[in-house]
C-alpha cells in the first residue's frame, strides 16, 4: 500500500498540481484547468508504469492524445490547450540540462548520448500524441464536433 502511494499516487498528484499551475500561465479557465491537470497526471502514470524509457514516453503521449481528443469532443472545445499543458511534464527539460553540463565539462561521449536521448524523448512525445489523435479521428469520424 505504501509503495503504491509513494511510487505512483504522490507523483501523479504532483503532476496534476504542476499542470494546474501551468494552466494559470496559459490563461485557461474553469473545467479546462481540471482536464489539463488530469491529463498530466494520466500521462505521468503511464510513463511511470512503462518504466521511464523512451517507449514509455511514447505510450504516455499516446494516452494524453486520446484523453485530450475525448475531452475536446465532450466539451466541444479546441483540443490544443489540453494536449499542450498535459504534455509539459514529459518534455525532457532534464535532458537539455544534463547535455549542457556534459558539454561544458568537455565529456563529449556523454554529451552526445544525452543529447540523442533528449531528441529521442522529444520525437517520441511528438509521434505518440500525433499518432494517437490521428488514429482516434480515423476510428471515430462521427464523433467529430459539428462543423464550424
Amino acid at each position: 500500500m505504501e509503495t503504491i502511494f509513494f511510487d505512483y499516487a504522490l507523483p501523479c498528484l504532483c503532476a496534476f498540481l504542476a499542470c494546474v499551475g501551468f494552466t494559470l500561465t496559459f490563461n485557461i479557465h474553469g473545467y479546462g484547468k481540471l482536464i489539463a491537470g488530469v491529463g498530466g497526471a494520466l500521462g505521468w502514470l503511464v510513463y511511470l508504469l512503462g518504466g521511464k524509457t523512451i517507449f514509455a514516453a511514447f505510450l504516455a503521449a499516446a494516452a494524453i492524445g486520446v484523453f485530450a481528443e475525448v475531452m475536446s469532443r465532450v466539451r466541444r472545445c479546441p483540443v490544443t490547450g489540453y494536449v499542450l499543458v498535459a504534455l509539459l511534464p514529459l518534455v525532457p527539460g532534464g535532458g537539455i540540462y544534463y547535455a549542457m553540463r556534459h558539454g561544458v565539462a568537455g565529456e563529449t561521449t556523454l554529451f552526445l548520448s544525452t543529447l540523442l536521448h533528449t531528441f529521442g524523448m522529444a520525437a517520441a512525445l511528438a509521434v505518440g500524441a500525433m499518432l494517437a489523435s490521428s488514429v482516434f479521428r480515423a476510428i471515430f469520424p462521427r464523433l467529430r464536433p459539428p462543423k464550424k
Binding site: 500561465t25 499542450l84 504534455l87 509539459l88 511534464p89 540540462y97 509521434v127 500525433m130
Partner: peptide, 26 residues
C-alpha cells in the same frame, strides 16, 4: 542543484513549440 535547476527550467522548456510543430505536421 541539479533537481532544483531542472524543475525551474521546466517553466521555460519549449513544450508549446514542440506540440504545435507536431500538430502542424499532422
Amino acid at each position: 542543484v541539479d533537481i532544483v535547476t531542472i524543475s525551474t527550467l521546466m517553466v521555460l522548456v519549449p513544450g508549446v513549440a514542440l506540440t504545435n510543430a507536431m500538430r502542424e505536421i499532422m
